[in-house]
Simulated scan of single mutants.
Amino acid sequence: MRPIFQKLLLSALIALVALAPARAGDRLRLALQKTGSGVWEIAVITAFGLDKQAGLELTVTELANTDAAKIAIQSNSADIVVSDWLWVARQRADGAKLTFYPHSTAIGALMARDKSVKSVADLAGKKIGVAGGPLDKSWLMLRAFAQRQGVDLEKAATIVYGAPPLIAEKAAEGELDAALEFWNFAADLEARGLYRALDLRQVETALGAKGSPVVTGYVFDEGFAAKNAEALARFFAMIDKARHLIATSDAAWRVAMQRIPAKDPAVLALYRKSYSEGIPARSLAEERADAALLFSALADIGGPALVGRATKLPPGTFYEAAPASAAR
């Protein structure tokens, strides 16, 4: 072939490549609680183009509560949700193949207006609001902690379950004597005159945790993970970038703030501090070890009603793949 025809052919091929549509990013379907910090991260990811940098296309559905997330992942309406490792362990014990990757160590508190509430024993006869459902990990841990002190909260107190915003509002208006709230709503209630009767970090330590264990994580199916391991690795690396931007960049924090109902600067500062402190910093082995200790404590005290069929943390509860090779 003559050189001139070679050049023309090469030019034509280059033109065809240029005109061809770009390869779409790997699509991931997320279902996130609309009041959770996961939506802050998505807002920052979108604003800073981190999804495009990672070669990902994110479809996000916002949900009213944690139970809706569980339904979404079980019905295959989402690829990834945020939930807690205890629920994943329960599902694995029943044969499901869900697995968990750490998201945050931030944990809530039992908030009260009456300062006479200083221990779980003081909750007898009280009306307690619980953010989430009866299988929420924080509530299960509080029940186990109380049982160690001879208090069965389900019998000793009146329990009201509800979405975090509803429980927070009822507590602020005095309709509840105490409220077990997620960390961000606990900050709101503190600003509205309630106090921390019991921080759940104390409960974790009392039940055997060695450090500040991860509380929430990304939950997905093992089969999905096997088919999308590389995309998941890029997703986790992208989330890590977003988290550290929120913690260190005022520009990113301003984006995240748009998703936070609170407007008081002092409350917002507390949000950012608590969020930043909740970024996981320990090894997966350390997280798994603490989870195993807490799971055993729950199994010993509450039995199948709390932890399902398992007597120890089921293998595979924590996702094993290392995301270090993520970046494109």
Rank of each mutant, 00 (worst) to 15 (best):
Ala54Trp: 08
Gly25Thr: 09
Ser75Trp: 09
Ile71Arg: 06
Asp67Phe: 00
Asn65Asp: 10
Lys70Cys: 05
Gly49Cys: 10
Leu63Pro: 04
Val39Thr: 06
Arg29Met: 09
Leu56Pro: 09
Leu63Trp: 07
Asp51Thr: 03
Lys70Pro: 00
Ala68Cys: 08
Glu41Ala: 09
Ala78Gly: 08
Thr59Arg: 14
Arg29Ser: 13
Ala64Gln: 11
Trp40Gln: 05
Gln33His: 10
Leu28Tyr: 06
Ala24Gly: 11
Ala54His: 11
Lys34Pro: 00
Thr35Phe: 01
Leu58Trp: 09
Ala69Met: 08
Ala22Cys: 12
Phe48Ile: 00
Ile45Ala: 01
Lys70Ile: 10
Gln33Ile: 13
Leu50Thr: 09
Glu57Leu: 05
Thr66Ser: 13
Pro21Phe: 01
Leu58Gly: 12
Gln74Gly: 13
Thr66Leu: 05
Leu63Ser: 04
Thr46Ala: 14
Phe48Lys: 14
Ser77Trp: 11
Ala43His: 07
Ile45Ser: 02
Lys34Cys: 04
Ala22Pro: 04
Asp67Tyr: 00
Ala22His: 07
Thr35Tyr: 05
Asp51His: 05
Lys52Met: 08
Leu32Val: 01
Asn65Lys: 03
Ala72Gln: 13
Ala78Phe: 13
Arg29Pro: 02
Ala78Thr: 13
Thr66Phe: 02
Ser77Val: 02
Gln74Phe: 13
Lys34Trp: 09
Val60Met: 08
Leu58Cys: 06
Gly25Cys: 06
Leu56Thr: 08
Ile42Ala: 13
Asn65Gly: 01
Val60His: 10
Thr59Leu: 14
Gln74Lys: 04
Phe48His: 13
Gln53Val: 02
Thr61Ile: 04
Ser75Phe: 13
Leu63Cys: 05
Ala68Ile: 00
Leu19Cys: 14
Leu50Gln: 07
Ala47Gly: 07
Val44His: 04
Leu58Ser: 12
Gly55Lys: 14
Lys34Leu: 07
Thr35Ser: 07
Gly38Glu: 04
Ala43Gly: 09
Ala18Asn: 02
Leu50Met: 05
Lys34Ala: 10
Ala43Val: 04
Leu56Cys: 09
Ala64Leu: 10
Ser77Phe: 11
Glu41Lys: 00
Ile73Tyr: 12
Ala22Met: 11
Arg29Ile: 12
Arg27Phe: 01
Ala24Arg: 07
Asn65Gln: 07
Ile42Arg: 12
Gly36Leu: 05
Ala20Ser: 14
Arg23Leu: 15
Ala72Trp: 07
Ser75Asp: 15
Asn65Ser: 02
Gly55Trp: 06
Val44Tyr: 03
Phe48Cys: 00
Thr59Phe: 12
Ala43Ser: 12
Gly49Leu: 06
Glu62Cys: 06
Thr66Glu: 11
Gln53Asp: 15
Glu57Phe: 07
Ala43Asn: 06
Gly36Ile: 08
Thr66Pro: 00
Leu32Thr: 04
Gly25Trp: 04
Arg27Pro: 09
Lys34Val: 06
Asn65Leu: 04
Glu57Asn: 09
Ala54Leu: 01
Lys52Val: 10
Phe48Ser: 11
Gly55Arg: 13
Ala43Phe: 05
Ala47Thr: 06
Thr35Asn: 08
Val39Trp: 01
